[in-house]
Design a protein around this nucleic acid. Structure first.
Lengths: 167, 167
DNA sequence: GGGAATTGGTAAGGAAGCCTGACTATACTC
DNA sequence: GAGTATAGTCAGGCTTCCTTACCAATTCCC
C-alpha cells in the first residue's frame, strides 16, 4: 500500500496497440458499466441500468428538475428521457409533481425509496472508486477527476439534435 | 505526490451534485463518443460506430487476431463481434484470411484501405486529446492515462458471459 | 485410430436503448 | 387574439447487443 508507484511513462510492452487516451476513457467506462451492471444482476435494488442511475443521481438534492433539463444533462432526447423517468417512476424511485409556476412542466422528485436506493448505489460507486484509489493513489485520482470535470465543463453541450431548433 | 495522507475534502460547492468519479468517467466517455460520432455523421470515412473503431484499432499491427480474441478484447460476445467484423469487411476495412495453423479459425487483417481510414480516425482522436491537453495540461493527461491503464489492467476481464463454460 | 469434449465461427430471433416524426397543451410576444 | 416557442407524450423504427441453436475443425484420451 501507500503509492503503488505507477510509472507514468508507458514503456510499450513491445508488441503493439498503445491505446489512445480517448480509447482508454471509453474502454474504462465500459468496464465500469459492466462492473456496476454485474452488481445489478444479483437482484440488487438499483433501478435498472446506468442511465437510470445517472438520472437519479442528477435528481438528488435538486427540486426543480424537469424532463427536458434532465435530457440535456443526460445528453439524450427528451423522449428517451421520458422513458427513463417512466421506468424510474414505475419502480417507485421518482415522482412527477406539478411544476409550481409552469403548468405544462412537471418537476421530477426522488422518492424516499429512490433516495435510499440511490444511496446504496452511490456506496457501490464509492467502493469502486476506493478500490481504484488503492491502485493508483488518491492524489492521482484527484487529478483524474479534475481533468474529467474540465473536459465536461468545456463541452457539456453536444446535444443529439434536440431537433427543435431545426428549420 | 506519493503522500498517503489523504486529503479528502472536496470543498463541496454547496448546492448539489458533486459527481462521483465513476459517473464522471462514464459521462466523459459518452461525451467523447458523441463527439466522435458527430464527425461520422458528416459522411466521413470511418467505418460506422465506436465499436468498429475499437475493433479496427485492436487489429492494427497485429496479424494473428481471431474473432474470439477480438471479442474478449471488446468485452462482447463472439456473435456480436462477428457482426462487427462483417460490417468492417463489407466496408472494405478488414479481410478474413485463413488461420495458418488452425483451419476452423480465421485471422482478421486490416486492409490497406482500413489502415488508411483508421489512421484518419486516430488523427481525429489525437485532435480531441490535444484539445483536452490544452485544457488541463499534458502532464495531467499523462496521469489520467496511467490511472485508466491501471484500472483496465486490474480488471480487464468482465466477459459478458462467454457462456460456453456453463454447467 | 475412434469417439467425446472443446473451441472457432455463424445464423436466427429477441430485448434494450435511443432516435425521428407527429401531436397536445401551456407559455411567451406582439 | 394570433403566432411562435416550449414541456411533454405517443407511435414506429433502427442499432447494438444478447441468447439459443447449430456446424466444423481440433484436441483429449482410451
Amino acid at each position: 500500500m501507500t503509492t503503488p508507484e505507477i510509472d507514468a511513462d508507458h514503456t510499450p510492452t513491445g508488441s503493439a496497440a498503445e491505446d489512445e487516451l480517448v480509447i482508454l476513457v471509453i474502454r474504462t467506462a465500459k468496464a465500469l458499466v459492466d462492473r456496476l451492471g454485474a452488481g445489478r444482476a444479483g437482484g440488487t435494488s438499483s433501478p435498472m441500468t446506468v442511465v437510470h442511475g445517472l438520472a437519479a443521481r442528477y435528481l438528488l438534492d435538486r427540486e426543480d428538475v424537469t424532463t427536458v433539463e434532465l435530457a440535456r444533462h443526460l445528453g439524450i432526447t427528451k423522449q428517451s428521457t421520458s422513458e427513463v423517468v417512466t421506468a424510474l417512476e414505475e419502480t417507485g424511485n421518482v415522482r412527477r409533481a406539478p411544476h409550481p409556476s409552469d403548468r405544462r412542466a412537471r418537476v421530477l422528485l426522488l422518492t424516499d425509496e429512490g433516495k435510499a436506493r440511490l444511496e446504496s448505489g452511490r456506496r457501490r460507486w464509492q467502493g469502486v472508486e476506493d478500490e481504484w484509489a488503492a491502485l493508483v493513489g488518491r492524489d492521482r485520482l484527484d487529478v483524474v477527476r479534475a481533468a474529467l470535470e474540465a473536459y465536461l465543463a468545456a463541452h457539456d453541450d453536444d446535444p443529439p439534435t434536440d431537433h427543435a431548433s431545426e428549420c
